[in-house]
Design a protein around this nucleic acid. Structure first.
Length: 666
RNA sequence: GGCGGCGUAGCUCAGUUGGCUAGAGCAGCGGAAUCAUAAUCCGCGUGCCAGGGGUUCAAAUCCCUUCGCCGCCA
């Protein structure tokens, strides 16, 4: 076993808060693994930070009317805090907007550029003149050339599922502003993945202990043959490409993000006052570099990133990539951008972190996607944590309190049954070690629960409430054994349930044990225990019902909300009414001719019951100038006027101070 | 469209170098017990292992195919 372990968790993207899917995917597994390694006294560090570059950040910021910097500052802080409250321990939690990281990313690029692993190419790409930016394929929308659906994206048609090239779209439009994009030449820099393929393949071949999902995925890529991959973007937000001829270009977010692992480690070293300490990990080929990620990141961590590291040459390569599948929400996927999620910060307001840590840990998507369901959460907390684990500990300490004046009874000689119990405890510890080392974390927590179940069985079988009366020595042995098991449970659960672990130690009135001594009874007879405390309160039905209702509400709000750009599509102008007449045979309709800054328009409006033609002439009103023309009762209408209505009242929108007709309203 | 994955008990999930009557937890039913958070303990499962076909003495597990869901892709 190599000594040094560098653990990373995928850098969370700073365009939204953390949700349960993120936690189950990598942050909780990373934390469990790290806590375990620390308990084993291994030289391990856990490194993370927010990923703050890239196009989606700029778009999300625009939507909210904020600058990208404000957006990432906000989410960086939120994410950091909620991780802390959830008990995710990082040695360093950095961000990819630090000067140190910018420098590292530039240096990394320069190094592999000089080693000729980067080439440039000029391509044609859609550019939106109105937004003044190049559009990624998925931000282009148009009519599908195959099925005529109007909602095809530049990369794929949502309707028929065909993959498209943006150039093939009929009447392409910018998804952000609705403008018409034009094809424009642009130059980009490409990382020669094709050159790296042979050594990458050779390296991956040796990783036969890796998870299947990772290996199979890479195999597929190799089969198709790797191609140079663009690592620059036309964007102002991000890390500028360190080349004179690359003005206005930044590094692709996926290029700089993993370098963030290195930057964050450097930052940690500086923070602890040993600025060279990061080298002990990154520059030592004996270090085990372990990346906890979700399956969406496999291609970058198992192929692009190792290839980058190989090209660079100085750093250690990943030794393990325990990639989880996805945790889905009942009835669909989590989505940060669409705000369909169960947010960590919300659950922290309602529940002790360990409740969620447990519910997620026993249902980690290690082999396949799994589902989170609030009813399931409730039953896991109530039936498993509270009834099995919590109750065993409670019945043990309560027994000591009421029968032995809160002093642990002396154990004289262990019976066969007692020894069996302690032996099972030993087995549990070994088994947990094996499972965690193999990244089978779900099995690890289940093994722990098996110990609690065995302990309950033992308690029932030994009947201390009876032996107390007719065989007091036996009773003392039983309870003494139970308290040793309780103590061991506290230590063994620490990677999974750190908060509860602490609570139990407090009840036992004892310091944390050394992992390698766990299993050896250490609570002395006659020791006074602390105040008895309920470890897990039951989760009530009401609160679960509320949580279930909450899912989807936020999503709906987001869907109904429009962006400023959508509003900008509506062209509102001031118009003056030049003439008006009632339309015959139509009770409500009036035909008016308006002047919009010199342009005459005929508009049909349903205002005849509220305004007479005479009243209307000369009024300055607000009209929608870019509404598609329509025929109403056979009369052409080219625009629409604005009026407020409630019940049967109707009043026209007009202007507060005089302004020329044709003036824009916004 | 190409590549890959998944589909096991009412629910959440284990289970593939092919091999004992296919498992666990929860829910459900019956019982025991009363130290304990009405907690615990014992007993109870005829599931077309998505459908179909094939290889094999033997398939949830390997191969082919259909359907459904998901991920990745200049």
């Amino acid at each position: 076993m190599k000594n040094k372990i560098l653990i990373t968790s995928a850098l969370p993207y700073a365009n939204g808060p953390i949700h349960l899917g993120h936690l189950a995917g990598c942050y909780l597994p990373g934390d469990i693994y790290y806590r375990y390694q620390k308990l084993r006294k291994r030289d391990a560090i856990h490194i993370c930070g927010t990923d703050e570059n890239g196009i989606p950040i700029t778009i999300e910021a625009e939507k909210l009317g904020k600058s990208p910097q404000e957006l990432v500052d906000n989410y960086h802080e939120k994410i950091r805090k909620s991780f802390e409250a959830f008990g995710i321990v990082h040695d360093n939690f950095s961000r990819t907007s630090t000067p140190l990281h910018h420098k590292n990313a530039r240096d990394f690029f320069t190094r592999i550029y000089e080693k000729k692993y980067i080439v440039n190419k000029t391509i044609k790409q859609y550019f939106c003149p109105r937004c003044n930016r190049f559009l990624a394929d998925r931000y282009i929308e148009g009519t599908c050339p195959y099925c005529d659906s109007k909602e095809a994206r530049g990369d794929q048609c949502e309707s028929c599922g065909r993959w498209l090239d943006p150039e093939n779209l009929v009447s392409p439009g910018c998804k952000i502003c609705g403008g018409t994009p034009v094809l424009k030449e642009t130059k980009h820099w490409y990382f020669r993945l094709d050159v790296m393929q042979p050594q990458l393949e050779k390296w991956l071949l040796k990783k036969d202990n890796w998870k299947n999902n990772v290996k199979k995925f890479c195999k597929g890529w190799f089969k198709e043959g790797l191609e140079p991959r663009a690592i620059t973007r036309d964007l102002t937000w991000g890390i500028p490409v360190p080349l004179k001829e690359a003005k206005g270009k930044v590094l692709y977010v996926w290029f700089d993000a993993p370098i963030g692992y290195i930057s964050s480690t450097m930052e940690w070293a500086q923070r602890i006052g040993k600025p060279d300490r990061w080298k002990d990990y990154w520059l030592d080929s004996e270090t085990r570099l372990i990346h906890f990620i979700g399956k969406d990141n496999i291609v970058f961590h198992a192929m692009v990133w190792p290839a980058m590291l190989m090209a660079h040459g100085d750093f250690v390569l990943p030794s393990e990539i325990p990639a989880n599948e996805f945790l889905n929400i009942k009835g669909g996927k989590f989505s940060t951008s669409r705000r369909k999620a169960i947010w960590l910060q919300d659950t922290l307001e309602l529940f002790d972190p360990d409740l969620m840590r447990y519910a997620l840990a026993v249902n980690l998507p290690e082999n396949k996607d799994t589902e989170f369901d609030w009813n399931d959460f409730q039953s896991k907390v109530n039936n498993e944590l509270a009834n099995i684990l919590g109750n065993f500990i409670n019945r043990t300490v309560s027994f000591i309190k009421s029968n032995y004046s809160s002093r642990v009874p002396l154990c004289k000689a262990l019976s066969n049954e007692d020894n069996k119990m302690l032996h099972f405890l030993d087995e549990t510890k070994k088994s947990m070690e094996e499972k965690i080392e193999k990244f089978e974390l779900k099995k690890g927590i289940k093994t722990l629960m098996d110990l609690a179940k065995a302990a309950n069985r033992y308690f029932d079988k030994e009947k201390p409430w009876e032996t107390k009366r007719n065989a007091p020595e036996k009773c003392a042995n039983t309870i003494n054994t139970c308290i040793q098991v309780t103590d061991a449970l506290a230590s063994l659960m620490e990677p999974y349930l750190p908060f509860t672990s602490k609570k139990i130690l407090k009840i036992l009135n004892i310091e944390k044990n050394e992992w390698n001594r766990v299993g050896i009874p250490r609570i002395p007879g006659n020791k006074e225990i602390g105040k008895v405390e309920i470890l897990f309160r039951k989760v009530e039905n009401e609160i679960i019902t509320l949580q279930k209702e909450k899912i989807g509400e936020e999503e709906k709000k987001m869907a109904d909300r429009i962006s400023i750009d959508e509003f900008k599509k509506v062209e509102l102008k001031v118009a003056v009414v030049e003439s008006a007449e009632k339309i015959e045979n139509a009770q409500k309709l009036t035909k008016i001719i308006v002047d919009i800054g010199g342009e005459k328009r005929q508009i049909v409006a349903g205002i005849a019951e509220n305004y007479s033609p005479e009243e209307l002439v000369g009024k300055k009103i607000i009209v929608i100038a870019n509404l598609a023309p329509a025929k109403i009762r056979g009369v052409d209408s080219n625009g629409m006027l604005l009026a407020a209505t409630k019940d049967n009242k109707l009043t026209l929108l007009t202007i507060d101070k005089d302004i020329d007709s044709g003036a824009k309203v916004s």
